[in-house]
Design a protein around this nucleic acid. Structure first.
Lengths: 335, 335
DNA sequence: TTGAAAGCGCTAACAA
DNA sequence: TTGTTAGCGCTTTCAA
C-alpha cells in the first residue's frame, strides 16, 4: 500500500542508495548486472522514485504550466493537444490553468506559479491592454515563458503566432474580390495582439482596394457574456454590411444566429468569413468560410521551444515564429 | 533572480524558520503582528514556499491528474472546465493527460503516475474491453480515483455519469414517436460503459414499441482514423435507415457528411439525433437534435468528490452519481 | 564500480 | 508565542 522508498529498496538488495539511484538515471558507472537486478526488484515491488524528492534535489519538476484565456474554443483545444503531445514525448507533465478571459484571474494565476512546481510557462494572454507586470515577475523568478497566439508584444520573449495580418488581409481581399464594399469587421473589445494585427490586415486590404475606412463598420464586441448577442444584433441591423470578416470564431456563430433573427440570408444578403478552427464549419448552414490556423503546430512548436529553453538547448535565433493560416472558402462567401 | 528560501527569510527577520513557516499556514500559535511582518517581507522579497519541499514533507502535492481519451470533443472540454474550476477553488492544480483513445497509452500513462506528484486521479477510460489491471494498480498505490463518463464498472469506485440508458431511451422513443421504424444506432467499436448503456436504452425503446431488434442496424464504428467515414458511408448506403440515433458526436458529424454525399436529405430522408454538446448544433444544416449532457457539472462534481476523498472529508454514501441529460430537439428530427 | 554523507527547503513535534 | 531539530526521499560529490 504505502509506497516504498529508495532506502528500503537498497536494503533489500544489499546495496547503497546511491547505487540504486544511479540505476534509475542510467549512469555509466554502474555494473549492468547490478542495474538489472535493481530494476527487476523495483518492478516487482512497484517502486517509483518520489518526484517531489527528486524535484527538491534537482530543482526541476519536469512540469510545464499552460495558461489559456479559454478552453471551450477549437483553437485552444487543438493547441493544447500539440502542447500535451510534445511535452509527453519529452518527459514533461502539463498543468492547465484557465483565466476565463479575465485579466485579474490571469494575474492571480501567474503570481501563484511557484518556482519548483513548474519549469516553464506557455501562455496566451487575456488582455494586453492591462498592466502586464505579472509577466515581468515571471521573468524575475527566472521562469522561462513562451507566448502563443495572444502574445505579449515584447522583444525579450519567444512567441509563436499565426500570420494574422496577412491572413486577415487575404480574407478581406477575398470579400473585396467578390465585389463587396461595405465590409464589417468583428473583433473583441480589448487590446489583444492578434486582434490588432487582424484588424490591420483588414484595413490594409480596404486601402489597397481604394475603399475608405469606415469606423462604424468595425464592431468591437464586449467580452462579458450576456450583452454580446444583443450588441452584435443591433450592429448588424444598424449597419447592414454586405459582408463580415470576423476575427473570432464565437462572433461568427453569433452572426449566424443574428442573421436568422434578422431574416438575412447568408451569403446572398450577408457574406461571412471568420477565423475559426471549427471542425463542423463545413456542416453549418451554410458552410462557413474560415481562416484556419495551424493550431496544433502552434502548440507543439511553442511547447518544443519552451522545453529547449528549460534544458538550455539551442533555441531558434529568431524569437518570433509565425505559422501561416489557410483560407477555407465555403458557401458563406462563395455560395 | 534565484528565489530565496525560508531560512534566508527567517534570518532577515530575526526569526526562526518554524515561526515563518507558521505564518504561511496561518497557524494559531503565532502573533498576528509577527505574521504581518513576515508576510510583508515575503511579498517584498517575492518569497514563495517551495512546493516540492512542502510536498516532500507533507506527502501531498495539491495536484490532480485528469486522464481523458480525447480533448477535441465538446463533452470533455466542458467537463475539464468544471474540473479546473473546482480544483482551483479548492487550491488544487490540474495535470492533464490524453490517451487518444488508445488503451496502451492509457496504461503507460496510468502507470507513470507517481505517488507524490499527484494526490488523486480523475479518469475517463479509453476501452473497458481490455485488461484494466492498471486501474487496480492505481488503487494499490493508494491513489484515490474518481471515474466520469466512460467509467470503470466496479462497485469500489466512485463514478459520475449521465443517465445514459434513460436518455438514449428518450432519444430513440422520440424517433419512434415520429413514426420511424428502421432506426439505426451508431456507436463505437469497443467496450465502453456509456456505449453499452446507450445501446441498451435504444434496445429497450425498440422493444417497448414492439419493434424487433435488427443487429444489422447497429453500426459499431472503428475508432481508427481513416476508415471511419468510408465504413459509415457504406453502412448508410446499404441499410438506408429512416432515422439514426448516434451515441457519439463525431459520428453524427460524419453522418451529415455522408448524407451530403449520398444525396440524402435530413430530416426528410433520414432523421438524426445524437449525443452531443456541440455549441454550434443549432447552426448546423439542418440544426442537429441532441442529447445534451451536463458536462460541466459532471466534471465539477467528479472533481469535488475526488478532493473530498483526498482530504478524507465525508463523501456521498452512494458511489454512483448520475446527472440527467436533456433532449434538445431541432430540425434534424422535427424538421 | 560501489558507498557514505551532505543537503535540497520545508513542516511539525517538541522544548523553551 | 517562538525556537530547535529531525527528517520527508532523493541526487551527487567524493572517497573507497
Amino acid at each position: 500500500m504505502d509506497p516504498i522508498n529508495i532506502r528500503q529498496l537498497a536494503e533489500k538488495l544489499n546495496l547503497s542508495v546511491s547505487t540504486v539511484s544511479k540505476a534509475f538515471r542510467n549512469s555509466y558507472d554502474i555494473n549492468p548486472q547490478t542495474r538489472e537486478r535493481i530494476l527487476a526488484l523495483a518492478r516487482e515491488l512497484n517502486y517509483q522514485p518520489n518526484p517531489a524528492a527528486a524535484s527538491l534535489r534537482t530543482q526541476q519538476s519536469k512540469t510545464l504550466a499552460v495558461i489559456l484565456p479559454a478552453i471551450d474554443n477549437t483553437f485552444f483545444v487543438q493547441a493544447l493537444k500539440g502542447i500535451e503531445t510534445v511535452a509527453r514525448q519529452r518527459g514533461y507533465h502539463v498543468l492547465i490553468y484557465v483565466s476565463y478571459d479575465d485579466h485579474d484571474q490571469e494575474v492571480a494565476l501567474t503570481n501563484s506559479l511557484q518556482r519548483g512546481r513548474i519549469d516553464g510557462v506557455l501562455m496566451s494572454i487575456a488582455d494586453a491592454g492591462k498592466d502586464l507586470g505579472h509577466l515581468s515577475e515571471l521573468g524575475a523568478k527566472g521562469i522561462p515563458v513562451v507566448f502563443f497566439d495572444r502574445v505579449y508584444e515584447h522583444d525579450d520573449h519567444f512567441q509563436v503566432t499565426t500570420n494574422d495580418r496577412e491572413s486577415a488581409y487575404s480574407a478581406t481581399a477575398h470579400l473585396l474580390g467578390l465585389g463587396c464594399r461595405r465590409i464589417a469587421h468583428l473583433t473583441l473589445d480589448r487590446s489583444l495582439s492578434i486582434a490588432d494585427r487582424r484588424r490591420q490586415g483588414y484595413l490594409d486590404a480596404l486601402r489597397d482596394y481604394g475603399i475608405a475606412e469606415d469606423p462604424d463598420l468595425v464592431f468591437a464586441c464586449p467580452v462579458d457574456a450576456e450583452q454580446k448577442y444583443e450588441a452584435l444584433h443591433a450592429f448588424l441591423a444598424r449597419e447592414r454590411p454586405e459582408a463580415v470578416f470576423s476575427s473570432f470564431e464565437n462572433l461568427a456563430l453569433l452572426t449566424y444566429q443574428a442573421c436568422a433573427s434578422l431574416a438575412l440570408r447568408i451569403p446572398q444578403d450577408l457574406k461571412i468569413i471568420s477565423f475559426s478552427n471549427l471542425e463542423a464549419a463545413p456542416l453549418l448552414s451554410p458552410a462557413l468560410s474560415t481562416v484556419h490556423q495551424r493550431a496544433y503546430e502552434i502548440g507543439s512548436s511553442a511547447s518544443g521551444i519552451l522545453i529547449d529553453l528549460i534544458e538550455q538547448k539551442p533555441t531558434p535565433g529568431f524569437r518570433k515564429l509565425s505559422l501561416p493560416a489557410t483560407l477555407e472558402l465555403r458557401t458563406s462567401t462563395i455560395g
